[in-house]
Design a protein around this nucleic acid. Structure first.
Lengths: 133, 133
DNA sequence: TTAATTCCTGTAGTTACTACAGGAGCAAGA
DNA sequence: TCTTGCTCCTGTAGTAACTACAGGAATTAA
């Protein structure tokens, strides 16, 4: 059995975040010592690690909860999991596209912004009536 | 003079968001009609459009406020603006890198997740003791 | 005149945490 | 044994940038 600090180190999840996950029901409530301190089993720490990995992949918490209920089911969850993952992949793709466009616009603005004029061309562009595109 | 609905349509900023910007001091408070309704000049709407454009480029509100104070100054703001833009560009680049890596990991997991086994390889990978990478 | 639309203020909810405040338990050295 | 320092506890509030009501008043169109 491990105290919350150990659980944090082993899972990579911040202590405050662990307590937050417990409040929100993302992970089950651990047992407590006589003095009321949380005590984690290795399994519970593995669950924290699972949540952390999913979060690092950008899955929202609601979806992680779906994963957990799927992994406990009888019928093979693979199709469901893949579907969710692929939907998430599409979201990530859209985000990347957006950021790449944004980056181009930003770079374009920035590159026209070093000609030493009194008025900044970048601010002018942002304030003008023409759409930036 | 335009009511808030008009200002919203012309600037592309949601009505609730316009009021939020006003509360937060992102844009100046407009005048009011006798009955207390907000009335916007074209200049004020242009300012909303400016904020919208900056937000669409991902600039946080605090930085937009810096832009606005810079644009009102005597000394040429171009250098300052370019510096901020380039810093922001670096942030965007880092975000893109992150997402591209994440995408690869996600795709990798997803592609191994269609072999119809009873246990989902993707869930297994996320739950295993080995780091995902 | 009435119905539909727009607008008002003020408050609370969203996401996923993070940061206290104020207090108590615990382990190790002098 | 006492003290020092670390860890832990609960509960609350803050973060960013909105969004979503509730409950009511004004305006516009038919």
């Amino acid at each position: 059995m491990f105290a919350i600090g150990q659980a944090s180190k082993q899972s990579g999840v911040n202590i405050e975040t662990i307590r937050y996950y417990e409040r929100e029901g993302v992970v089950p409530k651990p047992g407590r010592s006589a003095a009321g301190r949380r005590l984690y089993t290795s399994d519970e720490i593995a669950k924290l690690r699972f949540v952390k990995r999913c979060r690092d992949l950008g899955f929202p918490i609601a979806i992680i909860q779906t994963f957990q209920s799927l992994s406990g089911e009888e019928h093979r969850p693979c199709t469901d999991v893949k579907l969710i993952a692929d939907q998430h992949l599409a979201v990530v793709d859209a985000k990347i596209d957006n950021l790449v466009n944004l980056r181009a616009a930003l770079k374009n603005l920035s590159e026209n912004c070093d000609n030493g004029t009194a008025t900044c061309p970048m601010l002018e562009a942002l304030m003008s009536d023409e759409p930036t595109k």
